[in-house]
Structures are given as C-alpha cells and as structure tokens.
Amino acid sequence: MNKRIAVVVTNLAGSGGEKIALTQAKLFHKKSNKVVLFLLEDIKSYNTENLGFPVIPLTNKKNKFKLFGKLGYKLYAKILASKMKLFGDFDLVLSNLPRSDRTVKELKHNNKYFVIHTSYKAEIEAFSKKLANKKIKLYKYLYNNENLITISNEMKDDFISLDIKPKTIQTIYNPFDFIDIIKKGEEDIRYEFDYIISPSAFRKEKRYDILLDSFKLLKNTNIKLLILAEYNQELSQMIKNRKLEKRVIITGFKKNPYKYINNAKLLVLSSSREGLPTVVIESLILNTPVISTDCPTGPKEILTENLSKWLVPVGDSKKLALKIDEALNKKIEIKKELINKFNEDYIYKSLISLIKE
C-alpha cells in the first residue's frame, strides 16, 4: 500500500543537506508513494521542474519568522500543519536541518523523524564556551525524546557524549541514484585541461584555506583546481593572496555537478567536519578517486579498505598536498562493493520501515 510522506527542509539553496532532502522526496515518489516536499522558504537552486510531486514553500521570504525565536517556529509549524491538511493524513514526516527541526518539533504528529546531517559534537567544539552551552541547550530541547536518524554511525556517539537522550536513534545512510548520477556524469563539458575538483559550498568548515595552501604546494603545477561554489569575495581574495589566479577557477553553482566530477582527475575534500559527505560518495560512484580529510564524521565510513589510504589529518596542508601528488600518479581502484551500501534501493527499505503498520 502506498504511503503519504512529508519531507521538510529549510530551502533548496544548494547545500548537501538540502540536496539530500530533495533526494529523499524523489526516492519515495519513485517507489510510488505520495510525497510532498515542504520548504520553510521559497528558495530553489536545485531544479524542481517535472518532479511529479508538489514542492510547497511555507513563506516567500528568507528568515521570515527567525527573529521571533521559538514563537517564530511555532508560526512556521502552524503554517506547515495547515498546508499538510490539504493533502490528507501523512504516515511519516522527515525533517532535515536544524531550522526545519525547530519547526517540526512544534508539529503535532505521531511519526516524525529528525535527520541529522552533521557532527554536532565537532560543531560545538569549535565554539566559545558561551555559544557551545547555548547550542547544547538548544539540541537537548530539540532532540530529547525524539526519533533521530544519523547519516553516519560515528554521529550516534555524538549524542551520547553531549548527554542528549533521544527516544530512538539509528543510522540510515543517504540514498544515491547510481544510474542517474552515472548518466548525468556522461554529459559533455567544455574544459580541455586536467583538473582536480572541490564541489563544496564556501563555508568556514570546508577549510578552503587548507585546500588552497595544499594546492600551492603541489609538485604538479600543470593541474588546475575547479571550485563548484558561487563566487565569493573572501574566497577570491584567498586565491589572490596565494597567487593562484591562473590555476584556480570558481565555476559557480552547477545543477549538474556530476559531469565535472566525472571528468576530474581527483575530488578533494578539506573539511574540518562533515556528516556523510555526499560529494565523496558521488565521486566514487563516478569512479573518480577521492582525497579527504579524516574529519568527523563520515569520510572514514566511505573511504574503507584500500581507499582508507587517501585519508589525511584535518588541517594538514602538507600531507594533503603529498597525497594529491601521489594520487595523480597512481591508478586507484574503486571497488563497487565498497559503495553499494549507499544505493537507493537498499536505503529505501530502511526508510519505508519507519512507517509502522
């Protein structure tokens, strides 16, 4: 029997968590369920045409009720509940990212799950004591006695260390449509030079300073670096400060990043923290080798067996550069059995089991 699923996310502005929420909705729809994707804000960088299911924004402005604090999220929840009623009773509500979680926390529904996309422990450790205490208080309010899904096994330990006591907690990896990713990876691109790629948005935790420092240290000076992020003045200045303007290209956000990843010599992730880095899995699906920091959490669960050799310590630009140079001179075998656990058909069985008969 087909089920009715509500997927809730802040917006579709372009981050990994937002992309995964869209992927969740697509997967439930593909499996003949009735799906509605709810956005707190009407912001869309990802293509939402011809999805076959509704994408319903709760407001048309960014951060419309954010300044109202908890009351603001009660307002979001009230709007969400009223829009959900238009579609009937939902069997499952999946919330993605903290602002959506604050909204869904206020929603009265007997089968709601919160999908945790990043390491809250690593996030909190980077804060001042005052801000860290504030965040811990927020996360305890949000997740105590709630149903949680972490996207990597290591993330489950975070909640124990932070003294957060969920009602249930389990790991379900993000789903990936291998066939679609490979098909989109086969599209032509206009670049005729060799390059390594970083398809991550420009954020502090992505540590572009480390990536650029390591790129400057490479022995291979013919290779270029493609950054699939929107133009950012700070990022541009970081490139200029290292005199890398001729070797580093900021391409802007791409709706189809797969063709760029597919044609890259390597994908490099320099983050200080992640959840389960989507781009690493997508790169392996496309048979493009990956060099990644061994950050909390996720990379070590993806780069296993022979691929674990390509993990480097967080914040070490010299070791990152050495590994990039080494990988550029090797043929790295990516065994399909190491990534099959991320196939959407396997993941769907876990997601649909969240609905109790």
Rank of each mutant, 00 (worst) to 15 (best):
N11F: 02
N11L: 00
G16V: 01
A25I: 03
K34Q: 14
K34S: 14
F38M: 10
S45M: 13
V55M: 06
P57M: 03
N60Y: 04
L67I: 13
G69C: 04
L71S: 12
L75W: 10
K78R: 14
I79K: 05
I79A: 04
S82K: 15
G88K: 06
D89S: 12
L94G: 03
P98G: 00
V104G: 06
K105I: 08
Y120D: 05
A122Q: 12
I124K: 10
Y139C: 02
N144S: 05
L148M: 11
T150Y: 05
F159M: 07
F159R: 09
I164D: 02
I164H: 03
I172F: 07
S198F: 04
S200G: 07
F202C: 10
E205L: 10
L218D: 08
E230A: 13
Q237V: 01
E245S: 13
K254A: 00
K254P: 02
K255P: 13
N262Y: 13
P277E: 02
E282G: 11
L284F: 07
L286E: 06
T288P: 12
T297R: 09
E305T: 13
L307P: 08
D316K: 13
D316M: 07
A321N: 00
L328W: 01
L328K: 02
K331G: 06
E344W: 09
K356N: 14
E357T: 11
